Simulated scan of single mutants.
Amino acid sequence: MVGLIGIAIVFVMVFGGYLLAGGKMGIILKSLPFEMIMIGGAALGAFVISNDMSGIKHTVKDIKKVFKGPHWRKSDYQDLLCLLFELIRIARANPVALEEHIEGPEDSSVFAKYPRILADKEAVALICDTMRSATMNYDDPHQVEEVLEKRIEATHHHNMHSTHALQTIADGLPALGIVAAVLGVIKTMGSIDQPPEVLGKLIGGALVGTFLGVFLAYGVVGPFSAKVKGVIEADSHFHQLIREVLIANLHRHAPNICIEVGRQNTPTHNRPSFGDLEEALQTLKQDAA
């Protein structure tokens, strides 16, 4: 919703100011389809050339983030802490009982309580692989932390592909606008024998290309890239939280301390209060009793 409001503000302010200054939309509207074919088509072609099919699909899918915002909500962070608390308690009480949950999370009664987390394959894999490693005596906290850091960094780098692709297009759009403008000037020079009123319209049409390239770069595609990057970085805190809690577990802190470490490392706007989380954990303890 906020993304749509932002786009509306950009268009209203730019074109509204133009009209209030006495500008006429006729010449822009007449030239717009042809300029958009040249500039938009060239940008699309450059995007296809510089990305493989996987990257193209990834970028198109991530454009939705501009309008939907971060995937993880405040309630999801509390659910994650509750999930990790249950798994750590099981691991401490009976490591053998943990296997059914980490080897088949899709059939786990614990994971089933948190369908939004279960739907994230990377988050589930991060939890299960790390806890499986601990059961195999690969429990040096410093080594595991390094492995997790590299894995999260690799996932983050992959997720950032779309924002890099969009920013590359934004950087190229002003130049493509100049290309379209030059073609318009070439067309104008072919009609140099025409009266000034005709030449004026032709030159105005050519300048629409420059305007469109710059406008799309800094008013649309560039902000899209920045928004996608912000959303991806916000969602990456979810995986960072998994790392913090599981590393605390390897240090053999009490389950409640591990969860508190995670709560303290949760971004402020998504951090559950101590009271709310304690109440949720008490409910889990009562259900398990």
Rank of each mutant, 00 (worst) to 15 (best):
A181G: 06
G40D: 04
S273T: 15
D276M: 04
D79I: 01
L277N: 07
S225F: 04
A154G: 05
N51C: 09
G41S: 04
H156S: 13
L281Q: 05
L202E: 12
P115N: 04
D79G: 13
E35G: 06
L80P: 13
A226N: 12
L183I: 15
F224Y: 10
E86A: 06
E260M: 09
D139M: 12
A93C: 05
R132Y: 12
G177Q: 01
H157Y: 11
L173R: 06
I63G: 02
L284G: 09
Q78K: 15
L199N: 03
R132S: 14
F238G: 11
M1G: 05
L81K: 03
S162P: 13
A93S: 15
P105I: 10
I203K: 03
L246I: 12
A288P: 11
F47D: 10
L80M: 13
L20S: 07
I49G: 00
R92Q: 14
A180P: 15
G6R: 12
S191Y: 10
C82F: 06
F238I: 12
G177W: 00
P223Y: 05
R73N: 13
V66C: 14
T130P: 01
A42W: 14
V110M: 03
E86W: 01
Q282V: 04
F34W: 11
P174Y: 08
G23V: 11
C258P: 07
G41D: 08
D120T: 11
L284H: 07
D276P: 00
G172N: 14
F238R: 12
D287P: 01
V185H: 01
G205R: 00
S31Y: 10
L212R: 00
E233I: 02
P196N: 07
K74V: 09
A206G: 02
D287A: 10
A165Q: 09
D139W: 07
R73S: 13
V228K: 06
M1K: 05
I90W: 13
F274N: 01
H156E: 13
A280S: 15
L84D: 10
Q143L: 12
Q286E: 14
